[in-house]
Computed example of a mutant assay.
Amino acid sequence: MTTPVALVTGASSGIGEATALKLQSLGYTVYAAARRVSRMQSLVTAGIHVLPMDVTDDDSIQAGIQQIIARSGRIDVLVNNAGYGSYGAVEDVSVDEARAQFDVNVFGAVRLTQLALPHMRKQRSGTIVNITSMGGKIHTPLGAWYHGTKFALEAISDCLRLEVEPFGINVVVIEPGGIKTEWAGIAADKLRETSGQGAYASQANTMAEAMVGEASRKRQSPPQLIADTIGKAVSARRPKTRYAVGFGAKPMIFMRRLLSDRAFDGFIRMATGISRKAA
């Protein structure tokens, strides 16, 4: 039988690294892509193919897909994991930064999907796995652009699922909750840099502490949980369309469905410690 082939983006650490190793353990030939190739020696040692790839650079994306097809002749699973969290008040975040957030979290994933789909259609099989977040279903203070990207990728995934199902291709959304990765620290630093001074300083500093404080770190789930869920999804004959996993994901999404907008606003203020009144 032909060995299945998987491409995982954002694979230099965290969820991407764990997923690359998980898929290899399931018998996949795995290509792990990231900008920081120097951090991927452990994957090379494990026998995983490492690709330098910047998902905001079309030439880089095309070169990566071409290399996979030239080497392996097919692509069975695409895990769109590359992404980051850009937090800051809507008033403070520059339009250039907002575009950069969408370029990485949305347009990079969509462009890779566009390039992978012709090969999957030819095979009459394949699975696109889009890593969104519980943040694709809920909202938090000072995260408008980040949440916007995740809401967008959720909607794109739903439309894509309808389009490609006739070709035997699955589209799966993974909605992680709090996970022990670099994400929270990077998002908190960006938040302090963007809105840590000025009119939104009180909210920004409170929210940043909620992201990286000891209480939050203790409750975060390991990246392996997400990797195992992805492994389960790609191994299923008919996977679920969505998997909400990791600390807080299911309860937070449930609360958003249950509560009115104003009631959920209050719930989030209480959870993050942000006051209703300006400082």
Rank of each mutant, 00 (worst) to 15 (best):
M1E: 13
T2I: 13
T3H: 09
T3I: 10
L7P: 08
A11T: 03
I15G: 00
A18E: 09
A20I: 09
L21V: 03
K22Q: 15
L23C: 08
Q24I: 08
Q24P: 05
G27N: 05
Y31L: 15
A34G: 03
M40P: 02
M40T: 12
L43D: 01
T45R: 10
A46E: 09
I48T: 11
V50T: 09
P52M: 00
D54V: 05
D57A: 13
D58I: 07
D58P: 01
I61N: 09
Q62A: 14
A63S: 14
G64R: 04
Q67V: 06
I68K: 05
I69G: 07
A70V: 08
R71W: 03
I75D: 00
V77S: 00
L78R: 01
N80P: 01
A82D: 03
A82N: 00
Y87L: 14
E91N: 09
E91L: 02
V93P: 08
V95Y: 14
D96I: 10
E97F: 13
R99Y: 12
Q101A: 12
Q101I: 04
Q101N: 08
D103A: 12
D103S: 08
D103F: 02
V104T: 15
N105R: 05
V106N: 03
F107N: 07
A109V: 04
V110S: 11
L115H: 07
L117P: 02
P118W: 00
R121Q: 06
S125A: 15
G126P: 01
G126V: 01
I128Q: 07
N130E: 00
G135A: 12
K137P: 00
T140H: 07
P141N: 08
T149F: 01
K150F: 09
F151M: 02
E154A: 12
I156S: 10
I156Q: 10
D158V: 11
L160H: 13
L162A: 15
V164T: 03
F167P: 10
G168V: 04
I169Y: 07
I169N: 03
N170Y: 01
P176E: 06
P176M: 09
G178E: 04
E182G: 05
I186G: 08
A187N: 04
D189G: 14
L191D: 08
R192V: 15
R192N: 14
Q197N: 07
Q197R: 13
Q197A: 14
A199Y: 05
Y200I: 05
Y200F: 15
Q203H: 10
A204T: 03
M207S: 03
E209N: 14
M211E: 07
G213Y: 05
R217A: 15
R217Y: 00
R219C: 12
R219G: 13
Q220I: 10
I226G: 06
D228F: 03
I230V: 12
V234S: 00
V234F: 01
S235P: 09
A236D: 06
P239I: 03
K240G: 10
R242F: 11
Y243W: 07
F247D: 12
A249D: 02
A263E: 05
F267C: 01
A271T: 06
I274N: 04
S275M: 09
A278T: 15
